[in-house]
Amino acid sequence: MESAISIFLEGRNLARLMEGVWITLKISAASVLLSVVFGLLVGLLMISRKPALQAATRFYLEAIRVMPILVLLYMFYYLPDKNWGLHFEAQTVAIGVFTLWGTAEMADLVRGALTSMPAHQRESGRAIGLTEGQVNRYIIIPQAVRRLIPGVINLTTRMIKTTPFIYFISVPELLKVGQQIVEISGMKNNMASFWVYGFIFFLYFLMCYPISCFSAYLEKKWQN
């Protein structure tokens, strides 16, 4: 146990792990935020009656879904640099790719939340003399948001769990830092990988569990 603690106390190890947590959280939070904003817009385009818009958004969603995140990361990190001399910061690429992915998922959630709304809800609102804007504001949107929350929470935890991929484009996120620590400490302490990865597991749990709890709380609150 003592040797385990010494791993984290050695040099800046603990501080570096916390920096990894910070990068993971920062990239996830930025991506989720941007995904929600763009996802709402694309989701509205998806339910538009224009066939061209429907086809384009459908293609976007399916294309993103079949593409491994890693491929997208490589594509946007290396291609512009090699071919056009455009160099993007690795973290910028990470947020961009995660947003591209999150927007597609979010748009599909928005589409689902809106199309699953019974037509009668809108009609009842009209029948009591509300304008279309008021129907959206007081009836459709509040219900859509309630339907969206579980999906958004799920997307958030999935993003946090997918951040280790960005170490392939050399962003020093949590897992990457852990691996470096294991490589160095492992020479002196053969339990190093157990303690370090165990600690990382615990950190991911700390990041994701409160979010799940929050989701459960909202679902319970809105059950009435």
Partner: peptide, 17 residues
């Protein structure tokens, strides 16, 4: 919206919010 304020309509499926 103004016309409908003068016409009360109740549906088969209640449709409360």
């Amino acid at each position: 919206n103004l016309v409908r304020q003068q016409i009360g309509m109740v549906f088969q499926s209640y449709d409360l919010f």
